[in-house]
Design a protein around this nucleic acid. Structure first.
Lengths: 191, 191
DNA sequence: CACAATTTTCAGTAATTACTGAAATTACAT
DNA sequence: ATGTAATTTCAGTAATTACTGAAAATTGTG
């Protein structure tokens, strides 16, 4: 790792730490970080050399990153080795990550909760538990559904919305008023 | 764990699994799940007994949950033991979790990136890396700032926004048009 | 098709993280 | 204060997860 500048080393180490807090192992985090800041695609041997991991560890790490759809694979002319890079668009990366986590963690949880909630239960404590599970289910469904919606927005709209921040409240109030006026003066229309 | 109904067992086991994927250990996930569905506060001995963990493991788990601000502690009259429960409001739980993760993971990352971006670098590759870090920094800052904003909204507004989903785009377009009209007919006003 | 280059797999080992029981500490009642 | 109940700490151990090197499989080339 001495072949890397301190700037890059630092970034890679931080990412490794963060990776492990997120259930992604340190190695994988570091490989991703390296690809992310690299100005050219790298092959597995280069990665192993730069991060001082075994070749097989890199192979596994890359496979893991692939399963998260976080790497791009390409070939260089006259070179049989595979070259890896991280997609450039940070928004796209963010979305991919969100999608994958949803698929792997949120969806199975929703399935479990849905199953639990339709179960026929008799005891007091099961009834209480079920009610709690329902509350959790509804929240997760609302939030994840909304994530899906937002996901479909084009990037500019999304950025606009985010920059609006809590001022969105004003806008929602305005919307409410408009509907009232419309209904009041003209009768009900589709929103 | 045989003292728990299958409905609850299943929920607890699922949460344990999910916990470990999120860098929270299985035990802690299970303790939380148990508290979440319990219709009354539990003391540490009860938890240890119900989940079949050692008393000390429960103690550590509860401490961990406390550090995430996910438990409520209370005393029952005429009983010296401490009783734990999970806050009822699922929205509040969600927010607490988001806040804690932001504090522990996002903020340190932002700090690191900010530091990296203001560094004076000379090489080609460092310049490229820096540009990538800037892009990541800006995205994280935008998203987390927005999270903070949304956080401050009252729950009803938030639910309204989420239910609006991608129709928010229409609303944003409307906002744009209103501004144009206002500017065109009356001159610039505060939005 | 044979061979060389490259990548993947996997059994063994290392490192890390989780868990326990015993001891120490703290909190509370008399 | 003293004793007892409750909780926490922590060193040792168990379990899990990560990593390696060697072997196998795959891929591409003449």
């Amino acid at each position: 790792m001495q072949n890397l500048s301190p700037l890059i080393q630092n970034f890679i180490l931080h990412f490794g730490e963060m990776g492990s807090r997120w259930g992604i192992n340190r190695t994988v985090g570091q490989i991703y970080a390296l690809l992310y800041v690299s100005d050219r695609p790298l092959n597995a041997d280069e990665i192993a050399e730069m991060l001082d991991f075994s070749r097989s560890n890199v192979s596994m790490g890359l496979k893991e990153l692939e399963s998260w759809r976080l790497t791009r694979l390409q070939h260089l002319p006259g070179d049989r080795r595979e070259y890896f890079s991280a997609p450039e668009d940070v928004w796209a990366i963010f979305k991919t990550l969100a999608e994958e986590r949803k698929k792997r963690e949120v969806d199975p949880t929703l399935t479990m909760l849905r199953g639990a909630v339709i179960e026929n239960v008799t005891t007091q404590s099961d009834q209480f538990a079920q009610q709690r599970m329902k509350a959790m289910h509804d929240l997760i469904e609302l939030v994840s559904g909304w994530f899906g919606d937002v996901h479909r927005l084009d990037q500019d709209t999304l950025v606009q919305l985010m920059k609006l921040g809590s001022k969105v409240q004003k806008l929602l109030e305005l919307k409410g008023k408009l509907k009232v006026v419309a209904v009041g003066k003209l009768g009900s229309k589709k929103s």
